[in-house]
Structures are given as structure tokens and as C-alpha cells.
Amino acid sequence: MGVRHGREYELILKELTDAVGRIPDSYLFFEMEEEEWERLESAERAEVQEALAEDLFYALGEESVITVGSGVIIHDRNRYRIDILIGEEELTFVSLV
């Protein structure tokens, strides 16, 4: 189902893809080893990160907090946004409206 949003899905997906790309070990979400990730070409990495962003968008409709490597993705329903954290520090967020 995904999260409720007022912005175009494509814009949200692009921003979410960029955001998860900033998590240095986001590949762990797919149970990849660092060596596997390092062997991927940049275009392949971009595809994996976009797939991750799509998975997160839909999963956040059911689960409001999801761990991605050393990051945490949080659907903030009250502020209509998706927060991306590493540790206690906000890395970025994606607005849904």
C-alpha cells in the first residue's frame, strides 16, 4: 500500500533513493556482503538503491521504523515525511506533501 502522500511518487522515490544512498552500508538491507557491493558498477548500485527506496516506501505503510544498515528510516505520520537517521543524528528527510 505504501505511505500516504500528496507529492508525485516519482519525486518522492528519487529523493528517497538519494537519501538511502547516503547510508554507507545500506546494502546490508539486502543481506549483501561489502565485497559484493564493491563489485557492482555504479549503475547497478543505483538500481539496488532505487529498489531499496521502493521497498521502503511500501513497507513504511505497515511498519513505521525500519533499520537499513547503520541507518534508521522512520515514517513520521504527524509531519508527513520520511526521516533518515544514522545513530541519533538526522541525515535527511523526504517530504510526502
Results as ranks from 00 to 15, higher is better:
M1F: 15
V3S: 06
V3A: 14
R7V: 00
R7W: 02
L13H: 03
L13M: 13
E15Q: 14
L16A: 02
T17L: 03
T17F: 09
D18N: 08
A19L: 02
V20K: 03
V20M: 03
G21K: 00
P24Y: 00
D25T: 00
Y27Q: 06
Y27T: 04
Y27K: 05
L28N: 04
F29H: 06
F30G: 11
E34D: 09
E36S: 07
W37Y: 12
W37S: 09
R39D: 09
E41D: 13
E41K: 07
A43E: 14
E44M: 10
R45A: 09
A46V: 08
Q49S: 08
E50S: 14
E50D: 11
E50M: 05
A51P: 11
L52E: 03
L52Q: 00
A53P: 11
A53H: 01
E54M: 03
L56K: 03
L56N: 13
L56W: 13
F57L: 12
F57I: 00
Y58K: 05
A59P: 09
G61R: 00
S64I: 10
I66E: 02
I66T: 04
T67S: 15
T67E: 13
V68D: 08
V68S: 07
G69C: 01
G69N: 12
S70D: 13
V72N: 12
I74G: 06
I74N: 05
I74L: 11
H75W: 12
H75Q: 04
N78A: 09
N78L: 06
N78P: 03
Y80S: 09
Y80H: 10
R81L: 12
D83G: 08
L85Y: 07
I86V: 09
G87Y: 14
E89Y: 04
E89I: 10
E89P: 01
E89Q: 10
E89R: 13
E90H: 12
L91S: 02
F93Q: 13
V94A: 05
S95L: 15
V97Y: 13
